[in-house]
Amino acid sequence: MVTLTHYLVLAAVVFCIGLAGVLTRRNAIMVLVGLEMMLNAGNINLVAFWRYLGSQAMSGQMFAIFAIAVAGAEAAVGLALLIAVYRHFRNVSVEEISSLKG
């Protein structure tokens, strides 16, 4: 019997894989990929909670839909930023792009 906890564990694992991707990769595109994975983990949680706890309310699904829309916007802007950054630095390694340094 697959329970809610199964889904939550899966989501936790996916989240941490995404986090690891964000933290360890140097290429900014891969950082974005990790972010997308983390967002997906969040969506799994939303839908799982909707399925197992929700009554007829559909907040879980609606939030997931909106999260996907936001993720889409984020990916578009993020990748556009990357291209702009690449044109500027000829590089998308997050190690090199450190103008944020104080």
Binding site: I29, E36, V47, R51, Q61, I65, A71, A75, A76, L82
Partner: peptide
């Protein structure tokens, strides 16, 4: 999880659009 609509959206948006966007980037 019987969220068919979301599944379809996931295919369209992520598999279809975002993955291609990332490949392009």
């Amino acid at each position: 999880l019987h969220a068919e609509f979301l599944g379809a959206i996931q295919v369209v948006v992520y598999v279809g659009a975002i993955a291609v966007l990332i490949l392009f980037a």
